[in-house]
Every structure is written in structure tokens, then in C-alpha cells.
Amino acid sequence: MAVAMMVDALLGWPAALFARIGHPVTWIGRLISRLDRDWNRSGDTPLIRRLAGLAAALLVIGICVGAGWIVQGLLPSGWSSILFVGLLAWPMVALRSLYDHVDAVAAPLQADDIDAARLAVAQIVGRDPATLDEAGIARAAIESLAENASDGIVAPMFWGALLGLPGIFGYKAINTLDSMIGHRSERHLRFGWAAARIDDVANFIPARLTGCLFVLVSSRVTKALSCMVRDATRHRSVNAGWPEAAMAGALGVRLSGPRSYHGHVIAEPWLNETARDPQAADLRQGLRLYVRAMLVLGGLLITLALA
């Protein structure tokens, strides 16, 4: 898993490679889309749609876990296996991609180009970008950075370190299922119910580990820890509140709060409510905190490997 992190930090997922073969997540996504189209029928009863969604989720996860198990079983033993597993796990890590996407928001925001920053933040969050001022853009990007550090790096590394390729492939299937069908839209409220619950379970430990990593590398350890412990459970998500609250305390800003989706304002509670609103400089500081946390994670993986 440390090899996968190092390769992704250096290369990301090259655009030329994506143009040629796509990406494993897009392959999983095509399977999920096909099952959603064929099995999620509006005329079925709520129970049937829940059972169909459960069957779809188990099928996708089973295929990915099985593929990882078969491939890992075919690899040679010894040090060469570490290299091969690392290279095969590499596409499942979003280390470089997450940094690049958030940096693409930070750069125009620091240059006071609000329109460009809105376009960039719209690539990583679902809220209405036209309603966001500087603080709203910075807040949205920081929240995305904190949550996706868990979903995109810590969680796949956790399951990969625990179970190898079956673990990291299976987790990526779970995460992709949740992002595609695990939301509360009319179409997916029942069909995606199982996917969302499975994702909650898979991310339970990694989300809390991510929060602890942010606390550990913060220059405001006590405040980051107290904010995480106090406010994490106020978040609408059982998991996302932990890294977001830790990030809010570490940066000394408030996150979450009311936001607009498709013209509707959703009243969410604040994390670190009495703190100030974030600005462009805080987003840049958040990226530095993220880099330090990922370096510590890589160091922990190497330490575990050599223990």
C-alpha cells in the first residue's frame, strides 16, 4: 500500500493512460449503471427495490473482491509481489488527484478570480456554485478535501493493508456504489439504501483514523482534538464529520452549515461554530495539513510492513 501511495503521488493517473484505457473506477461505474438501469424499476414495490439494490451491491462487490483474490493468487511471492500489488493498487488511490482538484480551487481563489474558483469547486462538490462567495468556496473545498482524504486515500489504504488486493478492490466497489446510487434521490432512496449502509460500515474506522491524522499533524492539536470529539457527531454523515471537524479545529475555521443544492437551502449544523469563516489562505493551509497527514500515513504503512 505504501508503494501504491508513492506511485500515485509521483504520477497520479496520467491523462494519456485514461484516454487509452479509462480507469478501474469507470469500469466499475459502467457495471453499476447497467444494474441500476436494469434492476431499479420504478414499478416495483419498495421492498423489491431494496432487495434488488442489495443484490446489485453484493454482485459488484463480489466481482471486485473475487478479481482481487484471483490476481493476487497469481502473483509471485517475495519482494516482487510487493511491487506488483503496489502497482495494481495504485489506481485505487486518489492521493494526487485530490490535491490537484483542491489546488485548482485554491489558485484562482487566492488570485481573487471568484468565477474561476466557482467553476473549479463545482468539479468536486454538488452544491450550487453561483451562490458561493469566497468563504463559501473555501469552505466547500476544505470539506471536500477532509472527507475525500478519508474516502479516497485512508480507507482504501486501510482495507488494502488489511486484506490486500481483495480489500482495496472491494472497498473501491463499495465507495463507487455509494457515490452513484447511495444518495437520497427519489430514484435511489430504496435501491441505493444497501449501498449507503455498506459504505457507512466500510468507512467507520478509516474516517476516525483520518480525523486522528489531521489532529496529529496540526499545530493546534488540542483545539483540533476537542473540535473533532465535540462536533463530529453533529454532521449529517456518520463518518464525514470526523475528518471535517478535525480539519475545522486544526485550521481554526467553521465548516458545514447551511448550503444550497439545486435551488434549495439545506440547514446543516456548523462544525466549530464560533470560529471565523475560512478564506483562500485557509484552503492553502488545509492542503499543507493534508500533505503532512498523508506523509504520516505512508510512514505508518512502512513501519507496519517492517515490524
Score class of each variant (00 low, 15 high):
residue 96 R to Q: 14
residue 133 D to G: 15
residue 44 D to A: 12
residue 52 A to W: 00
residue 125 V to E: 05
residue 86 G to I: 07
residue 115 D to N: 11
residue 75 L to I: 06
residue 125 V to I: 12
residue 124 I to M: 12
residue 140 A to M: 10
residue 75 L to M: 14
residue 136 G to M: 04
residue 44 D to E: 13
residue 118 R to S: 01
residue 68 G to W: 04
residue 145 L to P: 13
residue 100 D to Y: 03
residue 85 V to N: 00
residue 137 I to F: 00
residue 139 R to W: 08
residue 39 W to D: 00
residue 94 A to G: 15
residue 77 S to F: 04
residue 94 A to H: 09
residue 97 S to Q: 11
residue 70 I to V: 15
residue 79 W to R: 08
residue 146 A to E: 04
residue 52 A to T: 00
residue 58 L to Y: 03
residue 63 I to G: 02
residue 88 L to P: 00
residue 34 R to I: 10
residue 37 R to H: 12
residue 79 W to T: 13
residue 124 I to V: 15
residue 60 V to K: 00
residue 60 V to H: 01
residue 129 P to L: 05
residue 120 A to Q: 03
residue 117 A to E: 03
residue 92 M to Y: 13
residue 42 S to E: 11
residue 99 Y to S: 11
residue 143 E to P: 14
residue 76 P to S: 08
residue 83 L to R: 00
residue 79 W to Y: 09
residue 50 R to S: 06
residue 66 G to V: 09
residue 49 R to I: 05
residue 88 L to D: 00
residue 122 A to T: 04
residue 108 P to C: 11
residue 54 L to T: 15
residue 45 T to Q: 07
residue 131 T to S: 15
residue 141 A to R: 01
residue 77 S to R: 07
residue 119 L to N: 11
residue 65 V to F: 08
residue 83 L to G: 08
residue 114 I to G: 11
residue 123 Q to C: 14
residue 85 V to K: 00
